[in-house]
Amino acid sequence: MTAHLLYGGAGILLFVLGVWSFLVHEALLRKVIALNVMGSGVFHLLIAIAERGSLPPDPVPHALVLTGIVVAVSATALALAMGRRLEDEDDAR
């Protein structure tokens, strides 16, 4: 119970830190990192919720997190490529 609360609480903390950084900082790179931190928080929370008491852990949230990680990685890669392109345009001007 305490372990669950600690792990899930850490997830919530990461998520809120990510939201704060996303709203406060202007640089695109920091926003992308903040989004990733938010995502990590959500993954933490999902994994923490998957195991309840003495029952075997629920495989569905685990699979969801795996899916989520891959989507987050690809979205990050696309965002970084777009950010680099934007900077190239700014430099050219």
């Binding site: 609360l5 309840r52 008491g53 029952l55 629920d58 569905v60």
Partner: peptide, 10 residues
């Protein structure tokens, strides 16, 4: 967490 887990897909 304190609620008993309801129907699970697990």
């Amino acid at each position: 967490l304190t609620q008993p887990p309801g129907a699970r897909l697990a």
